[in-house]
């Protein structure tokens, strides 16, 4: 049991390092996932202007530029001045199972680097016939948007995007990878 607790602490640390805060005009907009070669993945609904800033876990504020925004996928790709942030590893989408433990890190309501834990509730469309989303039994709040949903190895299984009926809805990692690839950025 103590070992499990220690594992959770270590996991929180791993996921926090790759989570950034997205800031615009000195106000926190949401969260983001640090992606290779100085990029950040976040939600399209978090970034509505070409120039924003991100704050890394060590407190540095970096200027960021909006490269691609896909409102339908609710994903956006930012480019940073610096390329030295630790970057995310992505999970094997096939290993995401209903009941698997997952954690989310973000900045809900201004609380920096907050961790919440839960399980995968379902992998299903939000509307009949739509693309699947990861539904997670994890407590999120505004400010978590754009942040990572990770498995217990710290690998990203999705990007948190909205709260529906108390459930966290995340863009599945396969769609995030497709989006990043189409924007010309490699997968970590």
């Amino acid at each position: 049991m103590m070992e499990t607790t220690r594992d959770f602490v270590a996991l929180a640390d791993v996921v926090r390092r790759i989570t950034v805060e997205v800031i615009g005009n000195d106000t926190a907009l949401g969260s983001g996932v640090s992606w290779p070669r100085g990029h950040v993945i976040t939600n399209a609904h978090v970034v509505r202007h070409a120039r924003v800033a991100v704050r890394s876990v060590d407190g540095r504020q970096l200027q960021a530029r909006l490269l691609v925004r896909d409102a339908e996928a609710d994903l956006a790709l930012l480019s940073l001045d610096a390329a030295d942030l630790p970057t995310a590893t992505v999970a094997d989408a096939a290993r995401v199972r209903i009941g698997s433990l997952v954690v989310a890190v973000g900045h809900p309501l201004g609380m920096r680097g907050a961790l919440s834990a839960g399980i995968v509730h379902a992998i299903a469309p939000v509307v009949r016939g739509g693309a699947p989303w990861i539904h997670a039994d994890v407590r999120l709040a505004p400010g978590n948007s754009g942040g990572p949903l990770a498995d217990v190895s710290g690998a990203i299984v999705g990007v948190n995007a909205m709260i529906v009926g108390g459930l966290a809805l995340a863009v599945p990692i396969a769609r995030v990878i497709d989006f990043a690839r189409s924007a010309g950025v490699a997968v970590p």
């Binding site: 070992e3 499990t4 594992d7 959770f8 996991l11 199972r97 209903i98 009941g99 698997s100 433990l101 399980i119 995968v120 498995d151 217990v152 190895s153």
Partner: peptide, 10 residues
């Protein structure tokens, strides 16, 4: 340990 627990839940 955590991975084993997660797999057990799934």
């Amino acid at each position: 340990g955590l991975m084993a627990f997660s797999n057990e839940l799934a």
